[in-house]
Design a protein around this nucleic acid. Sequence first.
DNA 1: GGTTGCATTGCAACTCGTTGCATAGTACGG
DNA 2: CCGTACTATGCAACGAGTTGCAATGCAACC
Lengths: 176, 176
Amino acid sequence: MALEHAILVSLAERSASGYDLARRFDASIGHFWKASHQQIYKVLGRMESDKLVESHLVAQDGRPDKKVYAITTEGRSELTSWLVTPTPVEALRSEFAVKLRALHLSDRDAVLADVRRRREQHAAQLESYESSAAHYYPHPDRLDDDELGPWLVLRGGIIAEQAGLAWCDEILKELS
Amino acid sequence: MALEHAILVSLAERSASGYDLARRFDASIGHFWKASHQQIYKVLGRMESDKLVESHLVAQDGRPDKKVYAITTEGRSELTSWLVTPTPVEALRSEFAVKLRALHLSDRDAVLADVRRRREQHAAQLESYESSAAHYYPHPDRLDDDELGPWLVLRGGIIAEQAGLAWCDEILKELS
DNA sequence: GGTTGCATTGCAACTCGTTGCATAGTACGG
DNA sequence: CCGTACTATGCAACGAGTTGCAATGCAACC
């Protein structure tokens, strides 16, 4: 139930509608935890019956009404207790690694093309993270208290993409 | 349906029972694609009705009978066509990143302890990969054709663990 | 005037994977 | 002789996530 907690984190920062949350997940948090709007609406519904969040309707002009969700006291205590429980290291799960392992059964050129594609995707993602970093945190040596977390997460993304890139480069070297 | 393909890869190398497969997944392939025995039995059953694999019973002495699965021609062609289709880069999904993002809502010492724990796990995994590499591939500059894939996969694991380790170290530095 | 796109919420059906349980024979240590 | 551990297979229930579809109403573009 990690989406539940990701939503609590997001709502603890600011109340939002399901639609807003879906957009936030497309942007910041979503770099490390994707969620579709269907999934978000479903989980929000369950969280409301569990009293972790509460909602009220907000009329808007020129747009459909929206249902703004806020975290409850119970939600906050659930969140803080989750925050201090140790996190199991998630197993890495890579379809690409399975394919690579079967290299001797496969078509070398197809694999090469695939690796090149992946390399470009990692490079693009890395660039996007780095420009986010430069834009939002121009002075990483002087961060506010509430900036440190997001900054470290961004650093994690950068490190992961660099690793992905390095792996692709190593594969390309071996295959050429 | 990636487990299906991982099983096909494994059976293409050698026929095996569900139990054997579960152990293989605990060892080599499983570093990058975990699967429980329940899951494996279930998928094997479906794959048999889909004619991707076929089984026959083998009696053993002192042990229960086993059902040995072999890949079929149809399974092989499914496998080769899967091998040449491009692989989407899997989104990274990290519960830990979500927690880290909420650092300002959290208990600094609890986070520190968690990061230290994760650091140890990455270090242990890295060491295990490196000793596998040293043991199975003592001469990485001279690899057989069928060794290159597994070697590159292992390299991917090493690179990923090093990245995980580097991230932990960076977090520890910032939090101290 | 028609099409496209955005904002907003949601349902239904499905796949994938996890957890817990059941069964049964053998081997081994205390 | 008893408990534990290994080999071997499987079912049932559940949770998480994906895919596809649907509705409505406004704005902007051609």
